[in-house]
Computed example of a mutant assay.
Amino acid sequence: MLRGLVLAGGRSERMRTDKGALRYHGAADQRQHTAALLGEFCADVRVSVRPDQADELPAGLVPLPDTFAGLGPLGGLLSAFRADPNAAWLVLACDLPLLTRTTLEFLVNNRQPGRFATALQSPWNDFPEPLVTIWEPRAYGELLRFLSLGYSCPRKALINSDTAVLAPPVPDELRNVNTPEERAEVETVLRGN
Protein backbone atom coordinates (compact mmCIF):
# COMPACT_ATOMS: atom_id res chain seq x y z
CA MET A 1 0.00 0.00 0.00
CA LEU A 2 1.19 3.50 -0.83
CA ARG A 3 0.31 6.08 1.81
CA GLY A 4 0.91 9.83 1.60
CA LEU A 5 2.69 11.99 4.15
CA VAL A 6 2.79 15.81 4.15
CA LEU A 7 5.70 17.05 6.26
CA ALA A 8 4.36 20.13 8.04
CA GLY A 9 5.91 19.93 11.51
CA GLY A 10 8.74 22.39 11.07
CA ARG A 11 9.06 25.63 12.98
CA SER A 12 9.39 27.81 9.83
CA GLU A 13 11.94 30.06 11.55
CA ARG A 14 13.39 31.54 8.34
CA MET A 15 9.90 32.24 6.93
CA ARG A 16 8.79 33.77 10.26
CA THR A 17 5.32 32.27 9.75
CA ASP A 18 4.03 28.71 9.39
CA LYS A 19 4.95 27.59 5.84
CA GLY A 20 2.16 25.03 5.86
CA ALA A 21 -0.46 27.73 6.42
CA LEU A 22 0.66 29.85 3.45
CA ARG A 23 -1.79 30.09 0.54
CA TYR A 24 -0.36 30.02 -2.96
CA HIS A 25 -3.28 28.22 -4.64
CA GLY A 26 -6.53 29.99 -3.82
CA ALA A 27 -8.29 29.15 -0.57
CA ALA A 28 -6.26 26.00 0.19
CA ASP A 29 -3.20 26.38 2.38
CA GLN A 30 -0.03 24.43 1.55
CA ARG A 31 -0.94 21.54 3.87
CA GLN A 32 -4.31 21.17 2.13
CA HIS A 33 -2.86 21.66 -1.35
CA THR A 34 -0.08 19.10 -0.79
CA ALA A 35 -2.51 16.61 0.79
CA ALA A 36 -4.81 16.97 -2.23
CA LEU A 37 -1.90 16.26 -4.60
CA LEU A 38 -1.00 13.16 -2.61
CA GLY A 39 -4.65 12.11 -2.53
CA GLU A 40 -4.53 11.58 -6.30
CA PHE A 41 -2.06 8.73 -5.75
CA CYS A 42 -2.60 7.55 -2.16
CA ALA A 43 -5.79 6.23 -0.55
CA ASP A 44 -4.66 7.50 2.86
CA VAL A 45 -2.89 10.83 3.43
CA ARG A 46 -1.59 12.06 6.77
CA VAL A 47 -0.05 15.37 7.81
CA SER A 48 3.06 15.07 9.94
CA VAL A 49 2.97 17.66 12.72
CA ARG A 50 4.46 18.33 16.12
CA PRO A 51 2.01 17.19 18.84
CA ASP A 52 1.21 20.83 19.70
CA GLN A 53 0.13 21.48 16.09
CA ALA A 54 -2.37 18.61 15.71
CA ASP A 55 -5.40 20.68 16.74
CA GLU A 56 -4.45 23.55 14.39
CA LEU A 57 -4.90 21.62 11.13
CA PRO A 58 -7.73 22.65 8.82
CA ALA A 59 -10.79 20.40 8.80
CA GLY A 60 -10.46 17.33 6.62
CA LEU A 61 -6.74 16.81 7.20
CA VAL A 62 -5.62 13.81 9.28
CA PRO A 63 -2.78 14.64 11.67
CA LEU A 64 0.08 12.26 12.37
CA PRO A 65 1.79 13.73 15.45
CA ASP A 66 5.52 13.10 15.71
CA THR A 67 6.42 10.29 18.07
CA PHE A 68 10.12 10.79 17.30
CA ALA A 69 10.58 14.32 18.64
CA GLY A 70 13.30 16.76 17.69
CA LEU A 71 14.48 14.96 14.55
CA GLY A 72 12.98 17.22 11.89
CA PRO A 73 11.82 15.48 8.71
CA LEU A 74 13.31 12.16 9.84
CA GLY A 75 11.09 12.27 12.93
CA GLY A 76 8.00 12.67 10.76
CA LEU A 77 9.04 9.83 8.48
CA LEU A 78 9.85 7.47 11.37
CA SER A 79 6.54 8.37 13.02
CA ALA A 80 4.75 7.43 9.80
CA PHE A 81 6.52 4.08 9.66
CA ARG A 82 5.70 3.50 13.32
CA ALA A 83 2.02 4.10 12.47
CA ASP A 84 2.18 1.66 9.51
CA PRO A 85 5.48 -0.18 9.05
CA ASN A 86 4.09 -2.26 6.16
CA ALA A 87 3.22 0.69 3.92
CA ALA A 88 5.39 2.58 1.49
CA TRP A 89 5.20 6.31 2.21
CA LEU A 90 5.14 8.96 -0.52
CA VAL A 91 6.58 11.91 1.38
CA LEU A 92 6.27 15.57 0.38
CA ALA A 93 7.40 18.68 2.20
CA CYS A 94 4.70 21.33 2.55
CA ASP A 95 7.00 24.06 1.21
CA LEU A 96 6.94 23.07 -2.47
CA PRO A 97 4.29 25.39 -3.99
CA LEU A 98 5.43 24.76 -7.58
CA LEU A 99 5.04 20.97 -7.34
CA THR A 100 2.36 19.54 -9.64
CA ARG A 101 0.71 16.28 -10.50
CA THR A 102 3.16 15.88 -13.40
CA THR A 103 6.14 15.34 -11.11
CA LEU A 104 4.24 13.09 -8.69
CA GLU A 105 2.86 10.96 -11.50
CA PHE A 106 6.39 10.55 -12.89
CA LEU A 107 7.70 9.51 -9.45
CA VAL A 108 4.86 7.01 -8.83
CA ASN A 109 5.06 5.54 -12.35
CA ASN A 110 8.82 5.02 -12.01
CA ARG A 111 8.71 3.66 -8.46
CA GLN A 112 11.06 0.77 -7.81
CA PRO A 113 9.49 -1.11 -4.85
CA GLY A 114 12.43 -3.52 -4.56
CA ARG A 115 14.75 -0.67 -3.60
CA PHE A 116 15.17 1.25 -0.32
CA ALA A 117 13.42 4.25 -1.84
CA THR A 118 12.65 6.02 -5.12
CA ALA A 119 13.73 9.65 -5.04
CA LEU A 120 14.10 12.57 -7.40
CA GLN A 121 17.52 14.12 -7.86
CA SER A 122 17.83 17.66 -6.63
CA PRO A 123 18.31 20.06 -9.57
CA TRP A 124 20.75 22.10 -7.47
CA ASN A 125 23.23 19.33 -6.58
CA ASP A 126 23.87 15.67 -7.32
CA PHE A 127 21.96 14.41 -4.28
CA PRO A 128 18.53 12.80 -3.93
CA GLU A 129 15.72 15.03 -2.64
CA PRO A 130 14.43 13.23 0.49
CA LEU A 131 11.28 15.32 0.78
CA VAL A 132 9.89 14.22 -2.59
CA THR A 133 10.47 10.50 -2.20
CA ILE A 134 8.71 7.15 -1.96
CA TRP A 135 10.17 5.34 1.05
CA GLU A 136 9.62 1.57 0.90
CA PRO A 137 8.72 -0.50 4.01
CA ARG A 138 12.23 -1.92 4.27
CA ALA A 139 13.55 1.62 4.80
CA TYR A 140 12.08 1.71 8.33
CA GLY A 141 14.65 -0.60 9.90
CA GLU A 142 17.48 1.01 7.99
CA LEU A 143 16.42 4.50 9.06
CA LEU A 144 16.38 3.33 12.69
CA ARG A 145 19.86 1.89 12.18
CA PHE A 146 21.12 5.19 10.74
CA LEU A 147 19.58 7.01 13.70
CA SER A 148 21.33 4.63 16.14
CA LEU A 149 24.61 5.62 14.46
CA GLY A 150 23.85 9.30 15.08
CA TYR A 151 22.58 10.23 11.60
CA SER A 152 19.31 12.15 11.48
CA CYS A 153 19.54 13.35 7.87
CA PRO A 154 17.19 11.52 5.50
CA ARG A 155 19.34 12.56 2.53
CA LYS A 156 22.35 10.72 3.98
CA ALA A 157 20.20 7.62 4.35
CA LEU A 158 19.21 7.84 0.69
CA ILE A 159 22.80 8.38 -0.44
CA ASN A 160 24.09 5.42 1.57
CA SER A 161 21.34 2.96 0.62
CA ASP A 162 19.98 1.16 -2.44
CA THR A 163 18.00 4.15 -3.69
CA ALA A 164 16.61 4.68 -7.20
CA VAL A 165 17.38 8.31 -8.06
CA LEU A 166 15.47 9.80 -10.99
CA ALA A 167 15.99 13.04 -12.89
CA PRO A 168 12.90 15.19 -12.23
CA PRO A 169 10.71 15.89 -15.28
CA VAL A 170 10.28 19.56 -14.29
CA PRO A 171 13.26 20.48 -12.08
CA ASP A 172 11.90 23.86 -10.94
CA GLU A 173 8.96 22.11 -9.25
CA LEU A 174 11.36 20.95 -6.52
CA ARG A 175 12.09 24.51 -5.39
CA ASN A 176 11.68 24.80 -1.61
CA VAL A 177 10.34 28.09 -0.32
CA ASN A 178 11.86 28.92 3.07
CA THR A 179 12.14 32.71 3.29
CA PRO A 180 9.89 35.72 2.62
CA GLU A 181 12.09 36.60 -0.37
CA GLU A 182 11.72 33.13 -1.89
CA ARG A 183 7.98 33.33 -1.25
CA ALA A 184 7.75 36.60 -3.18
CA GLU A 185 9.69 35.09 -6.12
CA VAL A 186 7.43 32.02 -6.28
CA GLU A 187 4.26 34.11 -6.01
CA THR A 188 5.51 36.06 -9.05
CA VAL A 189 6.11 32.80 -10.94
CA LEU A 190 2.65 31.48 -10.03
CA ARG A 191 0.94 34.71 -11.10
CA GLY A 192 2.68 34.38 -14.47
CA ASN A 193 1.22 30.89 -15.02
Rank of each mutant, 00 (worst) to 15 (best):
Met1Asn: 11
Leu2Met: 15
Arg3Asn: 15
Gly4Phe: 06
Leu5Phe: 08
Leu7Tyr: 02
Arg11Cys: 12
Arg14Phe: 06
Arg16Met: 13
Arg16Asp: 11
Thr17Ala: 13
Asp18Met: 05
Ala21Glu: 12
Ala27Val: 15
Arg31Gly: 04
Arg31Ile: 06
Thr34Glu: 04
Ala35His: 04
Gly39Asp: 01
Cys42Met: 10
Asp44Gly: 01
Val45Trp: 00
Val47Ile: 07
Ser48Trp: 02
Arg50Thr: 03
Pro51Gly: 04
Asp55Thr: 09
Gly60Glu: 03
Leu64Ser: 08
Asp66Val: 05
Ala69Val: 08
Gly72Met: 07
Pro73Thr: 14
Pro73Tyr: 04
Leu74Trp: 01
Leu74Cys: 03
Gly75Asn: 01
Gly76Thr: 12
Leu78Gly: 02
Ala80Arg: 13
Phe81Ile: 02
Arg82Asn: 07
Asp84Ile: 06
Asn86Thr: 10
Ala88Ile: 05
Leu90Asn: 07
Leu90Asp: 02
Val91Ser: 00
Leu92Met: 07
Pro97Arg: 12
Pro97Gly: 07
Asn109Asp: 08
Gln112Tyr: 03
Gly114Phe: 05
Leu120Trp: 01
Gln121Gly: 05
Ser122Gly: 07
Pro123Leu: 06
Pro128Cys: 13
Pro130Gly: 12
Pro130His: 10
Ile134Tyr: 01
Arg138Leu: 15
Ala139Tyr: 01
Tyr140Ile: 05
Glu142Tyr: 06
Leu144Val: 11
Leu147Met: 08
Leu147Trp: 02
Ser148Phe: 03
Leu149His: 15
Tyr151His: 15
Lys156Trp: 13
Lys156Arg: 14
Leu158Cys: 10
Ile159Phe: 04
Val165Leu: 09
Val165Lys: 05
Pro168Ile: 12
Val170Met: 10
Val170Thr: 14
Arg175Gln: 15
Asn178Ala: 06
Asn178Lys: 11
Pro180Gly: 13
Ala184Cys: 11
Thr188Asp: 09
Asn193Gln: 14
Asn193Ser: 14
